[in-house]
Every structure is written in structure tokens, then in C-alpha cells.
Design a binder for these strands. Sequence first.
DNA 1: CGCTTTTGACCCGCGC
DNA 2: GCGCGGGTCAAAAGCG
Length: 140
Amino acid sequence: MELPDWVSLLSGDSNMIGEERSNVVLGEEEIKGKRTKPGGRMRKHTRPRFAFQTRSAADILDDGFRWRKYGQKSVKNSTFPRSYYRCTHHTCNVKKQVQRLSKDTSIVVTTYEGVHNHPCEKLMETLTPLLKQMQFLSRF
DNA sequence: CGCTTTTGACCCGCGC
DNA sequence: GCGCGGGTCAAAAGCG
């Protein structure tokens, strides 16, 4: 099981919202791409998928990537709609969907689909001043 | 001014 | 073949 870098990122960072973040890996499965229409976006036949449960009041959890919402649908099993997000990187076709549990509204289920093939900007952004500082300090 | 969100329409697979 | 459920597109509005 290959875990993307953001997993360790999630478990370690604390610079985000002051919410309680209990991320639990619910499962990993391979979904088969059945899109066979011409010009379809079927990249691979299988891509990893990770489901997380996060205890937070906000749906949007900034995990270090930029997400652009491209859809929202209500699901039959849940009273609340499900949101669909996509990574804004052209080179990166990672999708994620956020769904709130009707049982407990303070819990959101975030499902990631695919892996990022580019460095995390947010992380870089946070790390760059640190790196500079380190370089500065290493001069001595 | 560029980018994100919103929201209805469209599309597609599946079950009956 | 049709209806339903679920996923995506795209145009317009909204915000910094």
C-alpha cells in the first residue's frame, strides 16, 4: 500500500484550523475505469482511492493543495449533498469528494481519488522561509 | 482581472 | 426501453 505524501502531511501538521482532526483511513480500493467513450478521460484502469473521516465543522479542509469544486449532488443515503473537488493542477488529476454524515453532522467523509504527481505548494510555501532560515544558519 | 463557486443540464451505466 | 442514481460540464455570478 503506497501512501501519498499528504498522509504524513496530514498526521503531522498543525498550522491549520484549530479543529480537531482525527483522520482515519477507512479503506483503500481500486476502481476500474470503465470510461470507453472516444476522447474519454480514462487515464488508468485502476487508481487508488482513500477514504478519510475527519471531525471538523468545515467541509473544506485545506490539506495543502488547491481544490476547485466542480459539482455538488445530493446522495440518497444522506440528507446532505456531496461535494466534488478537483486538484487545480493541470498535471494533476486528483479528485476528492466530501460528504457529511447524516448520523453525525460534525463528521465529514473525505474521499481522495488518485495521487498527486506534483509537489505540494502549500507545504513549499510554509517550508521556504524555514529552508532559508536553515541555509542562513548553516553558514556558521 | 483572474480565479473559484454555484447550479442546472447533460451524460452514462445499471436494474427492472 | 425507460427511469433512476450518480458523476461531470460549463456558463454566469461572486469575490479578493
